[in-house]
Structures are given as C-alpha cells and as structure tokens.
Design a protein around this nucleic acid. Sequence first.
DNA 1: AAAAATATGCAACTAAGTTGCATTTTCTGA
DNA 2: TCAGAAAATGCAACTTAGTTGCATATTTTT
Lengths: 140, 140
Amino acid sequence: MGISLDEKCHGMLKQAQLYRTEARVAVLKVLFEAVGPLRQDQIAERLPDKGRNKVTIYRTLESLVAVGLVHRAFMQERAWHFELAHHCTDRQCHPHFTCSNCGTTHCLKDFSMPMAPRFYKGFVIQHQQVRLEGLCPACA
Amino acid sequence: MGISLDEKCHGMLKQAQLYRTEARVAVLKVLFEAVGPLRQDQIAERLPDKGRNKVTIYRTLESLVAVGLVHRAFMQERAWHFELAHHCTDRQCHPHFTCSNCGTTHCLKDFSMPMAPRFYKGFVIQHQQVRLEGLCPACA
DNA sequence: AAAAATATGCAACTAAGTTGCATTTTCTGA
DNA sequence: TCAGAAAATGCAACTTAGTTGCATATTTTT
C-alpha cells in the first residue's frame, strides 16, 4: 500500500515551497479525483468546506499554477478550467477530448499525439497543446 | 488582377445567404487583413466606423460563425479571438503559434500538423485543434 | 415602392474573475 | 514552544467580456 492522497498533496506543497493550507490541500484533492479539467465553481462544489470564498479558490489555483502543479486547460467555454499538471511533459500537455454529442471533456492521459517539428520557417516550437473533438465511447 | 476584397466579401455573404450590411463587410475585411485571431475590441479599433456598437460587432461575428465563415480560435486567453475559417479543413483548423517572448499569435496557415488517428480506445476523433508555443522568427 | 425579414443601437444586465485591505493562519528560529 | 515574520483568507467593491430586450433602421423581396 502506498501513501495516502493527503500525504501526497502535503508532499507536493512542501516540494513547491507553498504553505500547507486547508484550501490548497482540498483543491489538490478535488483535482486528483476529477476526470477532466474543472472550473472554479465546479471545484467549489466538490470542496468539503462549502462556504469557501471564491476569491480564495482563485488565489489558491493561481498559486498552484505559478509553481507548475496545476495547469489552466483550454478555454472554449468562457471560463478557465484547471487540472493537475502531472500528465504533461515539457513539450506537450496531454490532449483533451470533447464529445460533440454529450459535451463532456476527457483528459487523454496516455494518448501520445504526434509532435510538431522543432523548427518551422523561423519559428522555434517548444510546446504544443491539442484539443480533439468527436464522439466519446459512450456516445459513439 | 483578381477581384477586389470588397467583391470577395460580398460574394462570401451572398453565398452564406446573409444580408450584406456595412458591419459584416467591414468585419470580414478586417479579418482578411489580420495576421492572427482578433478580439472584439481589436476588431472595433480597426473598423472604419469607429463608433460601431460592440453589441453589433458581437452579433456580426456570431452570424459569421454560425455560417462557418469565421471561427472562434483556440487560444489561452480570457477573451474570444475570431478569425476567418478559410484555411481550415474539416478535420483540422490551421495551428496557431504564440510567441512566449513577444506574445503575438500567428496563424500557421500552410503548416501541416500531423493528424491524430481516427480512433483511440473507443473515442472517434473527428476534428483536431493545435496550439504551439515557442519563439517567433523575430524573437528567436 | 411597400412589405417582410433582418440588422442595429441603446441601456441595462450577467458571469467570471480581480483588487484593496483588514484579519487570520502557517511557518521559522530563538 | 511560542513570538514574530511571511503568507493566506474573506469581504465588499470593482472590472472585463459578453448578453438580452426592445424600439428603430436597413436590406431584401415582391
């Protein structure tokens, strides 16, 4: 048996040299359990402390993004979506798949998208992000 | 010598069965001349009629998006960015490149990104969108 | 040229996110 | 182990990006 989710979150915060606050641990745990990127309000409703102020949640996310533990995912919906960065490499974030039928978004964590070349007409390509659309297994 | 930009825009609107209004023609022309996706306010300031209401611009863009002449681009920013759809195929929008140094975004119109497979673990992949980051020719 | 269809502008509104500031919590080191 | 420094939290007020309802104006159709 490995370490608990709590311990894992504590370790991540320690390593990032961030204060271990209730809000940070709780937000990390929510993101660990999510199947796809979440908005602030979706995170809020999954938090144990229901009355948590939205400013705190935004600032918590901001601090986690700043140290690279969390990413802001695509924003096709007018709101930021947050997710753990642990399945992303330096050169590529894991791709996201959005079902055009049911609308849900999945992280394709173990899918490896072909990479763009490193150079193109004077552009130096360092990082790529991919968004896929189609039908999810449930709707296909 | 080919047809003028005006005539081109008129033709596009006719084909899409949209009324040919000053706002639509002007917005299309702005998008034709842009080097990358633009926000509503960036479009507004490039319009000949400076006092054009933002609601009109949004509704104009909405109608152009509805008929497929314009796309909302895949960007990492809080505001929507619009661009002509004429370099996109059914399976893929042309990729966007954002320079991490100067911040400008370029449409890589003739760049052909490798495609994702059509099927993956039960997902049917119909469309892909790619965002690249790195250094643009001017900053590299 | 009149009627029908559609687009425009205004004011007021909403959703998502941000800022300033006073208070509370977390960490550090004597 | 506790005092003080550093950082996080909550509140209220604000900003930005986009939307809605409705009266008026423009475009197309007949």
